[in-house]
Nucleic acid binder design. Structure first.
Length: 492
RNA sequence: GAGCCGUUAGCUCAGGCGGUAGAGCAUCUGCCUUUUAAGCAGAGGGUCGCUGGUUCGAGUCCAGCACGGCUCACCA
């Protein structure tokens, strides 16, 4: 951390020298007239003669990314929020003092430049500076100019450096922002209201996950960081907000992997008078809209495979998915048969697991990695879905789907259970399992059931993992690539 | 939590069978007024992740620890 290398020392000394010369070290009155990309767009196509006829003066500010010096003249590249532009400085134009100041600058310094445009011998649009000022000294050396910053750990810990020198990182996070904007617009256009519900909850609910615990001093009470906003969003359905969504962080106290960060961004939306089947179409539409706006194509490439988002997507039952991997329907319908199949596949499982839980586990093990093309998986057993509506024809399953794509789960949706008596029973059963040691089972939330007793319109709701969606659209193998500051152990 | 792999200069990397540390970029000095991986000449910069052990001698072999990556587990 306090690595005072020779390079840092040299830069500090340069700063001190400027201080002695009474040069303002951290001025804040420079206002750039232009951004690099706009200059290139506006003037890039002009000929040499047209440019030299121009009297336009441009000013821009940014970070020095490279310097090529010839003694009495130099070129450097300036990087601002949009890109890079070359700057040309020479002693006879900047003056003795101005040029000496330039010579004391380093790669990484933030400067403001004023000048006119011309084209170099090598046909690069360049600013010939007649004014140059230091706006902020960079006291640490930047990574090497053509390999950049490659060390993954350093890239996550010092994302600011990663962003400076690896252009594609900047582009990825711009893309992430665009995706989120498109999602918001999609739901706003359909009359959904965006809301914010508690992230600190006294009863964590809405998902089977371990919460983080924190403490409120004044009230002297423990609080949980939410694992899902679900139960609050459904209270809003009760309150008459018939179309509602929340796009924000969830927190789950789980291991870290290429698809798991302890805090992650989740979209949840609820629509009254709709069923989970309506949400399948809506989900197809959402992904198709984002894909078209983002890339102009319904096909995207992920991890070397092409994923075709053209609706309608395949629908498959859990059992059907397993049948595609050598299981016989008859053996999947009993607990014993299912256990036998799991053993045959060499899966380790808890023999005390109920049928429904085992079915899901076997599915995730055997079928999930192969679901590359978008697939709605349905036929989820009642016992793993305490908040979902029972299927009218077969009450042992619920009206629920999970969306798989690229070999992983992306979304989970169901027709919501709005029968308060049934909901109370199911939550009580969860609470009982919780007491019996299942710390993933949900807690009883009396107020949530009370809300349902006021009457919740029939509705369907869905959660989409936004980080995973961004991974898909940016062809990123790890969630850490799409989260600016992924959780790491503190460095020592 | 487990297994495998990695950690060498500010950055990117090389270091055969154990013999006391190298390159390019960056930095510093000198030359250079259209370069773009600018060039030329020279110089400085290292707790080889940390702690022990084996050895006459460890960047190299062994053990433990730290951090990271991948896989697995956890995540219904």
């Amino acid at each position: 951390m306090d690595d005072l290398t020779d390079q840092v020392e040299v830069r500090r000394q340069k700063l001190e020298k400027l201080r002695e010369l009474r040069i303002p070290l951290y001025p804040n009155d420079f206002k750039p007239s232009h951004v690099s990309s706009r200059i290139i767009a506006e003037f890039g196509s002009l000929s040499e003669d047209q440019l030299s006829a121009l009297t336009t003066t441009v000013s821009l500010a940014g970070r020095i990314m490279s310097i090529r010096s010839f003694g009495k003249a130099s070129f450097f590249h300036l990087q601002d929020r949009e890109g890079r532009l070359q700057v040309y400085v020479r002693r006879d134009r900047l003056g003795e003092e101005g040029y000496r100041l330039f010579q004391s600058l380093d790669i990484g310094d933030i400067v403001g430049v004023r000048g006119h445009l011309f084209v170099t011998k090598t046909k690069e649009l360049t600013v010939a500076a007649h004014g140059l000022g230091l706006l902020c000294k960079c006291l640490r050396p930047l990574p090497e100019k053509w390999h950049g910053l490659a060390d993954v750990e350093a890239r996550y810990r010092r994302r600011y450096v990663d962003l400076m020198v690896n252009r594609e990182v900047r582009e990825l996070f711009e893309k992430r922002s665009r995706i989120i904007r498109l999602i918001r617009r999609f739901f706003e256009e359909r009359d959904f209201l965006e809301v914010e519900t508690p992230m600190m909850q006294s009863i964590p609910g809405g998902a089977a996950a371990r919460p983080f615990i924190t403490h409120h001093n004044a009230l002297n009470m423990d609080l949980y960081l939410r694992v899902a906003p679900e139960l609050f969003l459904k209270r809003l359905l009760v309150g008459g907000i018939e179309r509602v969504f929340e796009l924000n962080r969830n927190f789950r106290n789980e291991g870290i992997s290429v698809r798991h960060n302890p805090e992650f961004t989740m979209l949840e939306f609820y629509q009254a008078f709709a069923t989970y089947e309506d949400l399948m179409s809506l989900t197809e539409e959402l992904f198709a809209t984002v894909a078209k706006e983002l890339a102009g194509s319904l096909t995207l490439s992920y991890g070397g495979s092409a994923i075709d988002l053209t609706p309608p997507w395949r629908r498959l039952t859990l059992i059907g998915a397993l049948e595609e991997h050598g299981a016989k329907r008859a053996e999947l319908e009993s607990l014993e048969g299912l256990q036998a199949f799991a053993r045959k596949r060499g899966l380790a499982f808890d023999p005390g697991l109920p049928y429904g839980n085992l079915l899901v586990e076997v599915f995730e093990e055997v079928a999930e990695p192969h679901l590359i093309q978008p697939t709605f998986v349905v036929g989820y057993p009642l016992e793993v879905s305490p908040l979902a509506r029972k299927n009218d024809a077969d009450p042992s399953v619920v009206d629920r789907f999970e969306l798989y794509m690229g070999g992983r789960e992306l979304a989970n949706a169901f027709s919501e259970l709005n029968d308060p008596l049934d909901q109370r029973e199911r939550l009580l059963k969860q609470a009982e399992a919780r007491r019996a040691g299942d710390d993933l089972a949900q807690a009883m939330d009396e107020d949530f059931v009370r809300a349902l007793e006021y009457g919740m319109p029939p509705a369907a709701g869905e959660g989409i993992g936004i980080d995973r969606m961004v991974m898909l659209f940016t062809d990123s193998p790890s969630i850490r690539d799409v989260v600016l500051f992924p959780l790491l152990r503190p460095e020592r």
